[in-house]
Design a protein around this nucleic acid. Structure first.
Lengths: 244, 244, 244, 244
DNA sequence: TATGAATGAGGATTCATTCAT
DNA sequence: GATGAATGAATCCTCATTCAT
C-alpha cells in the first residue's frame, strides 16, 4: 500500500519520501491523529528509520511545515513578474497561490489548519511564511500608492533595499498609513485568500482563476480608496453613496 | 486550580460548568490534546460525572460548538439594528463579531480552529453557523445593490418576508450578480473577518472597533465597485487608474 | 421500556420485580456484562433501591440463582408422581425439567451457564440444586435395581427415611454399585439432560417431550445393563454383540 | 510470578507464551474478569506487545479457543485407531478426551464454559469443534448399526471415502434413524462427556479411565437398544422389564 | 420508602519512542 | 543503512457503589 520498497537509497531521497508520506498523513488525519506507524508504513520504511532521520514527531511535523511553506512561497514567487504593475503582480501572485493550494490540498491542510491548531511552536513556523506574504502584499500596496501619487518623488524606489524571497523589499510601508493599519489590511487580504482557497478546493467547479478574480474584485478597489485617503467611516455619506 | 468545589448542584448548572471548562481546555489545548481528565478537574467534578451528563468526548465537543455558535450568532444579532442602512448594519455586525470573539478567545478557537480541524461531523456544526452569517452578508450586499439602483422599484423590500435569526430576509441575492460570485465574495469577507479576529486577539492593543474599521475599509469599496458593474480585470485601465 | 413505574409497593413485590429484571439481564448479557444500571432501569426502580434491598451485585446474583434453582426443583418435583415405576418417574421428571427450562431460558442461562462461569461462590449455589437432582436420579437407579431383583427383599423401602425436596429419600444408593460409580452415572445423566436442554432450546421444533424421549432412550437401557451386572468393558464380547 | 523474563524472542515463541498465559487466566478468571494486564504480566511481556501480536482481547480469546480446540481434537484423533471395532474406537476416543481435559483444565474451562458464555462469536468457534466430535460419534453409531445387521450388505464400508480429521467418514448416518434423533443422541452423549470431564476434574481421585468407563456403561447399551429398534417408551413393558 | 447527585477504581487500547542486532 | 522486538505513559470510558435529602 505504501511506497514501493527499494532498499538502500541515499539519505536525502529517503527523507523526501518520509516527508511526502508525513504531509499526506498529517494533512488527511490531522497532526494528533496521525500515527508514526502509518507514516512509516506509507513511506515504505521502518519506524526507527524515521526517527533516525527526523528525530521526533514534532520535528517531523516542523520539517513538513517548512518544506511546504517554502514550496508555497516559491510557487507564488515564480508566478509573479516583478516588472509589471502592482495590481498585475497581485493578480498573478493570487493565481499562483490558488493554483498551488488546489494542487496540494494535503500540504495546504498542514499549513492552514494543522500547523495553526497544535501549539505555538508550529504556528510560529507558518507565521514566518505568512509574514513573507504579508510583506509582499504590503509592498504592493505601497507601490500602488506611489504610482497613484507621482507628485511625491522623494520616497525610496522599490528594490533599493535587500530583496526578500518574493523579490520585493521588506520595509516599504507607505508612511502615510499607520503601520498597524497596513498590517490589518494585509491580514485581511491574506485571510480572505486562505478562506477562498479552502472554498475553491471544496466547491465543485471553482477554478484558481475564479478565486483570484473574486478576491481582486473584492480587495483592489478598497485598497485604492484607502490609498487615496478616502477610508470608510460609519457616518461618511460619500462612501455610502459609492457602495449603497 | 479548577472551579471551587461546591457539592450537589442541579444538573443544568453542573452541565454549564462542564461546558465552560471544556471550551477553555479545548480552546487552549486543541480537541485531541485536551484530556477528559483535565476538563473534569477544571470543571471541579469527577470524570464519570462528565460522562454521565455529556456522554463522550465527541458529544462534549459538539455541545461546546453548539453553545458557542449560538452565543456568537446571538451576539451579532443583538448588535445589528435592522432598520438602518446596509453599510451601517454591516459595520455594527462586524463590531459585535469582533467584540465577542475578543471576549471569548477560547470559544473562538473552538469554532474557528478546532471544530474545522477534527472531522466532518464537527465541521458541519460550524458550517451551519457560518452559513447563517454568510446569508447575513449576502443579504446586505443585495440590499446595498438595491439602494444603489432605486430605478428598479419592483423588487421586494427588505423585511417583507419572515426574518431569520439575524433579522434579515434569506433569499434576496441580487439577480445581476451570478450567485457563485456572491458566494465567493461573502466567503472572502467572512474569511477576512475570521482572520482579523484571530489577528486582533493575538495582537496587543488592537480593539474590536479597529478590526471592524479595517475590514470595512477593505471591503466596502470593493463591494461598491462590483455593484456598479465595474469589476477589476487583469487589463482594465480604468481600475488600474483608480487603485494605482 | 422497563416495568411500569408504580410508587410505594411493598418490599416483597419490589424485590421480585428486581429479581425478574436481574434474571433477565444476567441471562441475556451474562453476569459480568450485566450492569446494575440496566437492571435497575428494567426493574423500574432507582439504583440505590436495588442496593438497599439486595446489597450488592454478588448478592443479587446469588438471590437470582437461589430463586431460579428453587423454581426449577419445584417444577421437577411437581411433575413427578412418587407412586409410579422408577422409569415412569424419571420420564416425568425429565419432561418437567425440559419444559421448565424451555419456558424460562434466561433462568436456565443463569443456572446452567452464568452461575458456573463466574467463581466458586456462585457455582456452589448451583451445585446444591444439582445435588438434589442427582440424588433424585440416584434414588431412581436404586429403585430400579431393587425392582429388577425382588429376590433381595431386606433392603429398606423408599420413603422410610426423611424425604428431600424431590420427595425421595436421600441416601438409598444401591449397595452393589460403588458409590462413585453411581455418582458418575448420575452426573452423566444430568449432564446429558443439561446439554439436551440447551440443544432443545436452540433447535427449531424440538419439544420438551422429544428431548425427554431422546434422553430416556439413551440412558435407560444402559442403566438397566448396569443394574443387571453387565457393565461394558473394553474386551467384553457380549456387550459388543448387543450394541454392535 | 509470571514466566521468566527472557528478552528478544522471535515472534512465534512469544505468541505461544502469550496464549499460554491467556488460556490460564481466561480459564481461571473467566473471559470478562480476566484482565489484559494480568495476562501480559503472566506472559512476562508488556501489554502493548500483547496487542501488537494479538490485536485485542476478543482476538486473543479467539486465538485461545482455536488453539485449544485444535489441540483437543488432535488428542482425540491420536487416541483412536481407525481399524478397530466401533465400541473400541469410542472407548479409546473417550479415554483420550478425558485424559486431555484432565491434563488441561484451564483449556477445558475455556472451551466448555467461557467460550459458550460470552457471545455468539466465541460460541461458534467451539461449535465447529463440537460438530467434528459429534460427527465422529454419529459415525460410530452408524458403524455399530451396520455391524449389527450384516444382512444388509450394499451399504458402503467404513473408510471407503476420504476420512475427516478424526479419521472417519463423514456421512454414514444410519438411514433407519431419523436424523434429528441421531443428532439428539450425539448431543446427549457429548454433553454427558463434557459434564463428566468437569466432574472428573473437580473430584479427587477420578481417573480419565474411570470417567470413560462410566460413560461407556451409560451409553453403549442404550445405543444398542436403539439400533435394534427397541426404543424406550412410557408404556413399553419390555423396556420396563429390562431396566426395572 | 425512594432517589438525584456523585465518585474511586480499574479496564481496554494506543502511541511515541528506544534497544539490540 | 536498516529493522524486528519491546515498552512507559497516557487516554477514553465504564462500573459498582454511596451520600444527602
Amino acid at each position: 500500500m505504501g511506497a514501493v520498497k527499494t532498499k538502500r537509497m541515499p539519505r536525502a531521497v529517503r527523507e523526501q519520501q518520509m516527508l511526502d508520506a508525513a504531509v499526506r498523513i498529517f494533512g488527511q488525519r490531522g497532526y494528533m491523529a496521525a500515527s508514526m506507524d502509518e507514516i512509516a508504513e506509507v513511506a515504505g520504511v521502518s519506524k526507527p528509520l524515521v526517527y533516525l532521520y527526523l528525530n521526533s514527531k514534532e520535528d517531523l511535523f516542523t520539517a513538513c511545515i517548512r518544506r511546504e511553506a517554502a514550496a508555497l512561497t516559491e510557487a507564488v514567487q515564480s508566478g509573479v513578474r516583478p516588472g509589471l504593475d502592482a495590481d498585475r503582480q497581485l493578480w498573478d501572485g493570487l493565481r499562483a497561490f490558488f493554483t498551488h493550494t488546489a494542487q496540494h490540498p494535503d500540504a495546504w491542510s498542514v499549513l492552514h489548519l494543522q500547523a495553526r491548531t497544535h501549539g505555538e511552536r508550529f504556528a510560529a513556523e507558518v507565521t514566518a511564511m505568512r509574514e513573507e506574504i504579508v510583506a509582499f502584499v504590503t509592498r504592493l500596496i505601497g507601490a500602488a500608492a506611489r504610482e497613484a501619487r507621482p507628485q511625491d518623488p522623494d520616497r525610496p524606489e522599490p528594490g533599493s533595499s535587500t530583496p526578500d524571497r518574493l523579490g520585493l523589499d521588506r520595509p516599504a510601508v507607505d508612511p502615510d498609513l499607520p503601520e498597524r493599519e497596513v498590517a490589518g489590511l494585509a491580514e485581511a487580504l491574506v485571510g480572505a485568500a486562505e478562506s477562498l482557497a479552502a472554498w475553491a478546493n471544496s466547491t465543485e467547479g471553482v477554478s484558481a482563476r475564479q478565486a483570484a478574480a473574486t478576491l481582486m474584485n473584492f480587495a483592489w478597489a478598497g485598497l485604492g480608496n484607502l490609498m487615496e485617503g478616502r477610508p470608510w467611516s460609519p457616518t461618511d455619506p460619500d462612501h455610502q453613496g459609492r457602495a449603497g
